[in-house]
Computed example of a mutant assay.
Amino acid sequence: MLDSAPVRLPDPATVDVVALTRAICDIPSVSGDERALADAVEALLRSAPHLEVLRDGDTVLARTRLGRAQRVVIAGHLDTVPIQGNLPTELRTAPDGGSLLWGRGTVDMKGGVAVALYLAMTLPEPGKDVTWVFYDHEEVEADLNGLGRVVRTNPDWLAADFAVLGEPTAGGIEGGCNGTLRAEVRTHGMTAHSARAWKGHNAIHDAAEVLRRLARYTPAEVEVDGLVYREGLNAVAISGGIAGNMIPDECAVTVNYRFAPSATPEQAFAHVQEVFDSFDVALVDAAAGARPGLNHPAAVDFLEAVTAVTGGVAGPKYGWTDVARFTELGIPAVNFGPGDPMLAHADDEQVAIDEISTCTQALAAWLSTPVTSSHDDAPDGTERR
């Protein structure tokens, strides 16, 4: 059987950013199935003579080499969560009379991807050198993440002074992100027949104290570089029991701790251990947060240029995002993109058309402004290529 013809994306020279968003969304790319969209993105980028294009798996990277005083990264992930009868996309009318684009990926985060791809093609001579990154496997296990893979194998591809991740922020700027960890709080008992429960010790009953501590817990609000991050400690799963006629000898409560980016994962886990002192607590996984870095000169330029178009002020990102991967590389980063994050992964995922257009205009204004002072050297003196 012959392979099906490759899918194609429209040339942004002939369509607007909203039409490009719709075309990108209508190519299914559930995590693990990004190949068709990655191929289409690569083909479009290779048609632009001003871009150098690189590829690692289903991560596609393109960059200008104009010798500008500053290099920035604009990144977004190609994958989505599973489709739930919400493709193909539809243009709809909002209650206020505005226009919406409805369908899987419109919020998380193909709106942001379309903005980046549109500008990559239509800004051949930006005032800053730009590295555009379109990566795979963001919605699944961290070890599969395409951006993380590039960080591990080709970190020089991402060398820059500043980064913007096109995660949905409803067109606002969200600096840094909280860290996150999961831990298991275990209780231990002794098995017995449930008809003679007094012969054993019920581990599930002991978990009541774990839940009581969680119910009494007051999340902290922590100021980091001028932004206030709200923390959270919550039970997200509970397991235990052997059979319907046996007293369980073990129970595990899985807790998720979202912690401010001023703390390390080690400090965060120590706090969880303190909350559950006298219990058996095991770390399952953890990811560091990212400080907002809004006092960095490149970040200041970004905020001034973008807010001049969008209005508003920067706020914190409460969830964890891949801006933390840029922090690992010493690159300050923010989240900025179209779409209400409360609708991410929802079956009625939909984005306001105006937000897509406004985010495009704001990024174009920032990228088109030349840098007056050089930030071309990294802290270690290496050139930002």
Rank of each mutant, 00 (worst) to 15 (best):
E174I: 01
T310A: 14
L227N: 02
G244C: 12
V107T: 15
A378H: 06
D156F: 02
S47L: 09
P338N: 15
D277W: 09
V133S: 09
G127K: 03
G32C: 14
G176Q: 01
I238L: 15
T153H: 07
M109K: 10
L294W: 05
P82H: 05
L283N: 09
G312K: 06
G189V: 07
R216E: 14
R149Q: 11
A378S: 09
V253N: 02
E383M: 03
T218F: 03
V228R: 08
G312D: 06
V275W: 07
G337V: 00
V72A: 12
L147V: 09
L181C: 11
D377M: 06
T153P: 08
E42N: 03
Y118F: 14
L165E: 06
V7W: 12
E304F: 02
R385Q: 06
E139D: 10
V113L: 02
T369P: 06
A346H: 08
R35T: 15
L211P: 08
A235L: 05
L329V: 11
P292A: 06
T122L: 09
L227V: 00
R46W: 09
V115W: 00
S99L: 15
P292W: 03
M342V: 13
P341C: 02
M190V: 10
A19H: 13
V284S: 05
D354R: 14
V150H: 04
V17N: 12
L100I: 10
W157V: 02
G67K: 11
Y217F: 07
T327C: 12
D322F: 12
T80M: 04
A159M: 01
N202E: 08
G57C: 04
D96F: 08
A23E: 10
T89P: 07
L87R: 00
P95C: 13
E42A: 12
A142S: 13
E274Y: 04
S29T: 11
H271G: 11
E209S: 06
I27K: 00
G172H: 08
T187S: 10
S194W: 01
T360I: 12
V41Y: 01
Y318F: 15
L158P: 06
G232L: 14
L117Q: 01
A243W: 09
V275D: 04
T180R: 07
A23I: 13
R212P: 12
A75K: 00
S357N: 15
F276L: 03
V228E: 05
T310E: 12
V284R: 07
W132H: 01
V351I: 15
T372N: 00
E138R: 03
R92V: 13
A308K: 05
P265V: 09
C25M: 04
A94N: 14
D376T: 09
F302W: 07
G337R: 02
Q273L: 09
H375E: 06
Q350T: 10
D347G: 09
Q70D: 13
G240Q: 10
A38W: 06
P341A: 04
A314F: 04
T264M: 02
L363S: 07
T327Y: 13
A260Q: 05
A13V: 13
R22L: 04
